[in-house]
Simulated assay, not measured.
Amino acid sequence: MAQVHFLTHPEVAIDPATPIPDWPLSARGLERSRAMLAQPWVAGIGAMFSSTERKACDMAAILAGHLGLGFTQVAALGENDRSATGYLPPAEFEATADAFFARPEESVRGWERAVDAQARIVAAVRSVLAQAPPGDVAIIAHGGVGALLLCHIKGVTISREEDQPGVGGGNVFRFTRVGWGLVKGWRRL
């Protein structure tokens, strides 16, 4: 049965002076993206879609180059809109992200509401799967919207409990293309 591999970009080069969507992968993020290519499931991917944010496109380009495929950029696969605050120091970011998930019906500090980001990512995934050829699909995006998508797939309330593990991103979960049944939860790349 065909699967969807929802990947989150790994570590980025954080620059508070640069808009967050323009941050590239760091040297460690590039290294982890290349190491992912050895995973056995990678060979089965027949179509790829990516957020338009640079960090996701950097990862998608590595995977696409390895597979000899192109990838389609889709703005609706982007991370929850945090432009109201821009860069936040790590502790402040984590506290704000906690509030984002805890109060999904509210705009926390001007961020996109979690319920709206969830509706957007679910609709975007439905759209890309409708246009993808048969077979396995890779979607390269972000941890926050990945957690929201996973909540939807599992039929649970929006919660940070479904957020990706570890620090720095670079995770994957898989679900069936038909019926959206969870095959495997978050795993580090």
Rank of each mutant, 00 (worst) to 15 (best):
A2P: 15
H9D: 03
P133W: 00
A124E: 04
G78K: 13
V4H: 03
E92M: 10
D15P: 06
D15L: 02
A138S: 07
A147S: 15
H142S: 03
A117Q: 04
G185R: 07
R34S: 02
I158M: 04
F71G: 00
D98G: 08
P133V: 05
I121N: 01
V178L: 09
A38T: 12
A56D: 08
E162A: 13
L88A: 10
D136N: 11
A119Q: 11
P19F: 05
V4R: 04
A27H: 06
K184C: 02
S50C: 08
A38F: 00
V178T: 15
A119E: 10
V74P: 01
E53A: 14
R174K: 13
G143K: 05
D22K: 09
R82I: 15
I14Q: 10
A123L: 11
P16I: 00
S159V: 12
T96N: 12
H152N: 07
I45Y: 03
S51Y: 10
V156H: 01
K55R: 15
V128A: 06
A130P: 07
G181Y: 01
K184L: 08
L7Q: 02
G168I: 12
V108G: 05
A124N: 07
A43P: 04
A27P: 03
S107D: 08
A75M: 07
G46A: 02
R109E: 14
G135L: 04
S51R: 08
Q3H: 09
A102L: 09
I62R: 01
P19M: 03
A27F: 01
R82S: 11
A13I: 00
G44S: 14
F49P: 05
T72R: 12
V108R: 05
G29C: 06
S26C: 08
A124F: 10
A91E: 13
S83T: 15
L189M: 12
A117N: 04
D163T: 15
V125S: 07
G169V: 14
R126H: 15
T8V: 12
G68E: 04
A141P: 09
V145P: 08
L129I: 06
R120F: 13
S83E: 07
L129Q: 08
A141T: 11
A123C: 10
E106P: 03
S159G: 03
R82Q: 11
V137M: 01
W180L: 00
A99F: 11
S83G: 15
F100W: 13
L149T: 07
